[in-house]
């Protein structure tokens, strides 16, 4: 800490004593704060920046990347269609997986031991089977059950259909992904529900709020705070996980990319096409997750944190203020009181 003034020597002032003007009562008033210096931090920053620059330089100049091939494919019809298939898989598996997962979660939380056991067993089995094994199983369902029918349990069949006609490849993939996802979603939802204070359900019950409404309006919105971060993880995992359905020859992104480079041999740029799309889609999901989390955080904090837009605006304001008055930071950045 540096002294910029000696007009009011601290020891000369007795607090509250004598007829002197009140400003002198704070012996540290008028001192300038000099921030601590961090030379090693700057050295580390420089090293990291040099490494990043080298990597970027390599990306641009190394001919192996074949950026012109990348550019010619990244928005091509085949690839965009394949992205559509991937998105379809993600959307269906997310919706079906979380609906079934929520059902399983409430079964596990129910008072009925039968429902609890069934849900527990489901989660146990579907978490145990690798997704790819399960997908191949569904793909071969026709071998297991040639016909699927509706009828009296253990009695006559009223209606039946060839299982391969009913399910098809895409159907098998969707069922496989959804059932797998449901097992994980069940645990995530259950964790979220358990995180809600028991007094909430009790208050809802004491107010006579109907049971389903208690869950939908009181418990789930609060559980969402605990559910969303993990659920976001799961959906991103699922997005990339859809690439395993290439084993079933479904034209999703990774399968289509392989088809193309199998034909033209341009492996690296086409893998980059897939990478770019996965990164782009994951970014969209992350943004969606951010805003969903904000929405369900309502009421959780006394003052909600600013949105990114508000943060940018605030930053711009500080910059402008600093530009207009170079001393602004000194007078505001000063800690209030003790040395």
């Amino acid at each position: 800490m540096g002294f910029t003034t000696d007009s009011a020597p601290p020891r000369a002032v007795v607090p509250g004593g004598g007829p002197t003007a009140p400003p002198a009562a704070d012996p540290l008033a008028g001192l300038t704060v000099v921030p601590a210096r961090h030379p090693w931090r700057w050295a580390a920053v420089a090293a990291v920046l040099v490494l990043c620059a080298q990597f970027a330089h390599g990306l641009v100049t190394n001919p192996v990347w074949e950026w012109e091939v990348f550019l010619s494919y990244v928005l091509s019809e085949t690839i965009v269609e394949a992205v559509g298939v991937t998105l379809q898989l993600v959307a269906f598996a997310t919706v079906l997986g979380f609906l079934l997962g929520a059902l399983l979660a409430f079964m596990r939380l129910s008072r009925s031991p039968v429902l609890r056991t069934v849900a527990w067993t489901y989660v146990w089995i579907f978490r145990s089977i690798p997704m790819i094994v399960q997908l191949v199983f569904w793909f071969n369902l026709g071998a297991l059950y040639r016909e699927l029918g509706v009828g009296v349990p253990f009695g006559p069949v009223l209606w039946s259909v060839d299982s391969n006609d009913l399910i098809g490849t895409m159907g098998a993939a969707l069922i496989g992904l959804s059932l797998h996802q449901a097992a994980y979603a069940a645990e995530i939802v259950r964790g979220g529900v358990l995180a809600v204070d028991g007094g909430q359900l009790e208050a809802a019950a004491a107010l006579g709020i109907p049971r389903t409404r208690q869950i939908r309006r009181i418990v789930l919105p609060q559980a969402m705070r605990a559910i969303l971060p993990t659920a976001g993880n799961e959906v991103v995992g699922l997005l990339k996980g859809t690439s395993v359905v290439y084993v079933m020859a479904i034209g999703e992104l990774f399968y289509q990319v392989q088809v193309v480079y199998g034909r033209n041999g341009r492996v690296i740029p086409l893998l980059m096409v897939a990478t770019a799309w996965y990164v782009f889609l994951t970014s969209l999901l992350s943004i969606a997750q951010y805003y969903l989390e904000r929405r369900f955080a309502r009421g959780a904090d006394r003052t909600p944190p600013p949105t990114p837009l508000q943060r940018v605006r605030r930053f711009a304001r500080t910059l402008r203020a600093a530009g207009a008055d170079p001393l602004a930071r000194d007078s505001h950045g000063r800690p209030g009181g003790t040395p």
Partner: peptide
């Protein structure tokens, strides 16, 4: 209730 149990998200 002793500890209010208001619904914090509403």
């Amino acid at each position: 209730f002793q500890n209010f149990n208001l619904f914090p998200h509403l």
